[in-house]
Write a protein that binds this DNA or RNA. Structure first.
Ligand code: MN
Ligand code: MN
Ligand code: ZN
Ligand code: ZN
Lengths: 138, 138
DNA sequence: AACATCAGTGCAACAGAAGTGCATTTAGTG
DNA sequence: CACTAAATGCACTTCTGTTGCACTGATGTT
């Protein structure tokens, strides 16, 4: 059994051929991916399957969904020590307006915010938009 | 000339009947509104007109667009001293998971974030999700 | 091995929001 | 009033996300 198969099984996700392919694809990229990205990467793939695979991955804590402000849902693999399931890993995300790539800044946590009386925070999303390191070098 | 007409003209927006209605509607609500909200408020209104009106309002700095993570664009009137046009008024937004309302927390600015080497920040979006003051009282 | 069972997949269709092209109306200007 | 440009209305398209249902393939049991 490969490393990836073990990873999936550890999270109670049956390691089917398609799922392994998708996981491998996401692991190979250092940016968040959209459903369409995966669809284009494997032109044999069925949209619905990818959609439901990502849902499953998310529910089981293998990936987390990212709203980067483009109105297109992105997904990224959770890091080994990630606590996305319980909303405890509130790292921020960066979206590059030049190359349109979105990355996790896993080390950068969202600072605590004091809210007005009566407001109860349960989750937070912080996206910084600008120019990424690759694009700013050129 | 009414106060609203003056406000529109100050921002080089011709105060047509429809625009005044929309502005009034937004001023009457203390939450951000979606295109559909306005559409439902005036059942005589044409989607495209509302859409383009909001675009115009945004370009001229009368309103700012809000991405609250629901994948539905919301809009809110800019406060008198708001500098949205030049991305200088980075206040945060709160989205209530109970009543689904989104509000501007104009007094709460997004804290400055130190980014990794090479990343250039130009804009930021911070949304806190949870229970709003109205909902937490009941 | 045959069977029952259920998760996973493929296909089709739908929903909602966003956006565009073009004709028509409306409002400002001389 | 006549002219012009902006604003509006209508139709249509695109894109993402989502669901229903039938089929397939793996798993586990007798
Ligand atoms: Mn992330
Ligand atoms: Mn706001
Ligand atoms: Zn970039
Ligand atoms: Zn609420």
């Amino acid at each position: 059994m490969t490393e990836i198969e073990k990873t999936l099984q550890n999270k109670s996700v049956r390691p089917t051929a398609m799922r392994i392919l998708i996981y491998k694809y996401m692991a190979s990229k250092n940016t968040a991916v959209a459903l369409t990205d995966i669809e284009n990467a494997f032109d044999k793939a069925e949209r619905t399957t990818l959609y439901r695979t990502l849902k499953t991955f998310e529910e089981k804590g293998l990936v987390h969904q990212i709203d980067d402000g483009t109105n297109i849902s992105k997904f990224a693999l959770c890091e080994p020590g990630c606590n996305c399931e319980i909303d405890q890993d509130l790292h921020l995300h960066f979206h590059c307006g030049n190359c349109d790539k979105t990355v996790c800044l896993t080390e950068h946590k969202i600072p605590h915010i004091n809210l007005p009386q009566g407001y109860v925070a349960e989750d937070a999303n912080l996206v910084i938009k600008g120019i990424c390191d690759s694009c700013s070098q050129h």
